[in-house]
């Protein structure tokens, strides 16, 4: 199984950024079951990364792996829409609950 590599671009330590992180973690824990790696990138601390990726707004979530690359922007509270935007299906869970 390919592991998901997700990058979340945020701007500073704001309530909106914190909300986006929490929402995304919940979605990942519920849907991806540890089969993911989440990288939080603050565009204020790493402006060059945002420039390279041509990030225009935050919060922006990029699915780097597995291909194809997908990108969603906006509110991450709606799990169904987030999964739809990332083109992620519900990840099958083995009997052990992991892997």
């Amino acid at each position: 199984m390919n592991k998901f590599l997700l990058k979340l671009y945020i701007t500073g330590d704001t309530p909106r950024a914190e909300r986006a992180i929490n929402n995304l973690r919940q979605v990942c824990e519920r849907e991806l079951h540890n089969q993911y790696e989440l990288i939080i990138i603050d565009v204020l601390e790493h402006p060059h990364l945002a420039e390279e990726e041509k990030i225009m707004v935050t919060p922006t979530l990029v699915r780097e792996l597995p291909p194809p690359r997908r990108r969603i922007i906006g509110d991450l509270t709606d799990t169904a829409k987030v999964l739809l935007g990332l083109n992620i299906r519900t990840y099958p869970v083995s009997e052990s609950g992991k892997d």
């Binding site: 225009m56 707004v57 919060p59 969603i72 906006g74 509110d75 509270t77 935007g85």
Partner: peptide, 30 residues
């Protein structure tokens, strides 16, 4: 022709931070 992103909002609107380099903090309602 460039990738902007798949827009996701939970209600009618959501708020975004505009990334400007360099530039002042800017916010938009989507």
């Amino acid at each position: 022709g460039e990738l902007f992103g798949f827009p996701v909002i939970a209600g009618e609107t959501t708020e975004l931070d505009i990334v400007r380099q360099p530039g002042p903090d800017q916010m938009a309602e989507m």
